[in-house]
Nucleic acid binder design. Sequence first.
RNA 1: GGGGAAGUAGCUCAAUUGGUUAGAGUCCCGGCCUGUCGAGCCGGUUGUUGCGGGUUCGAGUCCCGUCUUCCUCGCCA
Length: 604
Amino acid sequence: MLRSHTCGELRAEHVGEEVTLVGWIDTIRDHGGLRFIDLRDRYGRTQVTLSPETIDGAELTSLRSEQVLQVTGRIQSRPDGMKNPRLLTGEIEVIATVATLVGDCPALPFDFAGGDLVNEELRFQYRFLDMRRPEVQRRFQLRSDLQHQLRNHLHEKGFIDLETPMLTKSTPEGARDFLVPSRLNPGELYALPQSPQIFKQLFMVAGFDRYMQIVRCFRDEDLRADRQPEFTQLDLEMACVEEDDVIEVLEGLMAHVVKALTGQEVETPFRRISYDEALLKYSSDAPDLRSDLEIFEMSDLAEDLGFKVFSGAVEAGGAVRGVRVPGAAEWSRKQIESLEAIVKNQGAGGLAWMKRTEDGLAGPVARFCEGDGGTQLVERSGLQVGDLCYFVADRSKRVVINSLSFLRKELAQKLGHIQPGALEFCWVTEFPLFDEDEATGSPVPCHHPFTAPHPDDLDQLESSPLKVRARAYDLVLNGFEVGGGSIRIHQRDLQERVFEAIGLSPEEARSKFSFLLEALKYGAPPHGGIALGIDRLVMILAGDDSIREVIAFPKTQRGTCQLTGAPTHVSDQQLEEVGLRVADPPKPASSQVSGDETGDSTQQ
RNA sequence: GGGGAAGUAGCUCAAUUGGUUAGAGUCCCGGCCUGUCGAGCCGGUUGUUGCGGGUUCGAGUCCCGUCUUCCUCGCCA
C-alpha cells in the first residue's frame, strides 16, 4: 500500500505514530518557512505541516490545489489553541518528513470551492474533478447506501435478485425506444428496455414469486430536471398479491431506508389519494403534501359571479379554480401580482385575485362578489380576514391545472411550508386505465397495457373504456412520482380484451406480445409489482433539484454527454457492418449549404 | 415542435438612457511572512463581451439570425 491511513481517520490516539498519507491538496496556507497543507480524500481532511526543521522543501516549491501528494511523517498533537474543532482530524497534524508529488495538476478549469454554483456545463465536462468535491461524494455515498439498504431489506423479505436482457425487443407502445442494430441480422434492430416489465411477469409465471432488480432503463423522450434518457429503477414484482400487499411491502421498505439513511421515522401507512382528488386538490397527479394548500373548484360559480373571464372559460369547456393563501392579504399589490408570470408561463391568460381585510373584500375580483355567487365563493374558499385568494380561469382545463400546480409550488415555498429534510409520502390510486389519445380519440393505456382493470369496472371495458379504473398506484414523495406499479392482468382472455380496447388486433397483439400471451396460458399466478425511480429518490434525499446531480455521468437536455461527446457519427464501415445507412449524412463543418448533390462545390 | 432564461477574464459576477481605456473578487504568476485552517500583506498577467450579420458618428448594451446550456408545455405505456 502506498498509504498507511486515510485522510479521515487519524485522531489524538495516533499521536507519535509514523504514518503515510496520499491525498489531494485541498488548501495550502503558506507562511513562508512554515506551510500547512490540508490533504483530502474520500474519508476526510488531515492537516500536514511542512516545516524547514523536519523536511527539505526545495523540491516542493510549486504546490498547488488538487495535486496528489504522498506524505510520510509523525503524528503530533496540535499545540493548544491550534486545534480545529470543525475537523474530525483537527486534534492532530502530520509533521512531514517526506513529501512526494505523485500526481501533478494544472490550474483548475473551475473554482473548486465555488460549490454547485459553478456552471453545470463546465462541471459535467470535468465531472471527474467535480466528483472529487466532498458534497458530490456525499451524494454518491448516499446513492450507494440507498441501493445497499434496498437490496438488503428486500433480500431479508425473501426477494430474489434476477437480471433481464438489455438487448431486447422493440415495443411500439409507450415511450420511444433506443434502437441497437444487429450485425448478425442485418436490417433488424434490438431495443434497449424501457423497463423489464414483461420479463418480470414471466418470472412470476416461472414461479419466482418475489423478484427484485436494480436495473437501468432507457426511454428516448425529451429530458427534464427529473428525467434522463437512461435511469435506474428498483424493479420488483410479487405473485399472489393484491394492491395492499405491494403497498405494505413498499411502505416497510421506505420506512426502513429512510430510517437507515437519515435516522428519520416515517409514519406508515401512507395517505392514499385518488387520482381525481389529487388533480383537483393539489393540481397534480403527484401531490406535494409538505404544504397543506388546497385548490378548489369554482367553475359552477362562474356564471353567477358575472365575471366574463371566468364564465367565458367555463362556457368554452374549461374551468375556474382557486387557491386560498392564508395571511397573504397583507402582501403588496406588486407582490401579489408578481406571481402572474408563473401562470402565464403555463399558458394562462392571467392571474385573478381577491383579498379579505377588515374592510371587506378587495382586489380585481371583489366587485363580482356582491351577489349570491360571491357569498358561495367566500364560503367555499374559506377566505378569512387576512387571507388572499388566487383564481385561474382558462378554456383548457389542463392549462388551469398546470398553472395552479406551479402556483401552488411557488406559494408553498413562499409561505415557508417546504421544510428542509421533510419527507411526505403518499399513494395516488384509482388511476383511469386509459387516457384518451388527443389525436385519434381512442383509448391509450394510462400506465401500460398489462395493468389490470378494476374488477367493478370490467363490464365497461368495451362500452365506456375511459371510465374504467386501473388497479394502479403511484408512490409520491414531496411532489415527485418516485414509483409506479399495478396489479397485472394474469388471464389471457382479459389481456386480449384490453389489447382490443386499445385498438390492437389479435394478430398485432400476438406479433408484439406473443411470448407474454403464451406465458399467460401456462399457469400464471395473480401478480403485481412496482418500480421505483432510484435517481429521483436519491435526488430528494440529497436535497437536490435535479437528478443530474446524483447521476455520475448525466446527459444534457439535448441528450449529449459533455464528457465523451456522445452521441457521435460512426464510420461508414461500422454502419455497413450493421447494415445501416444514414439518411441525412453529416454536413461538412462550417458549411451553410443544404444537401448539395453535385458534391463538388461544397468547399466554398 | 412551442414558450421562457442565460452566455462578459480560467471561475463567479459588475458595467446608468447606446458613449470614450470593459471592472471587481477569486484563480494563476512573482515578492514578503514560523501556527494557519476561507491564512495575511504587496505587486502583476489575463478579454474575438458565444458566433455571424445589421442599425449607429459610436454597440457588452438595440435589431435579425445562429450555436450552447438550463427551466418548461407537448412528449415521458
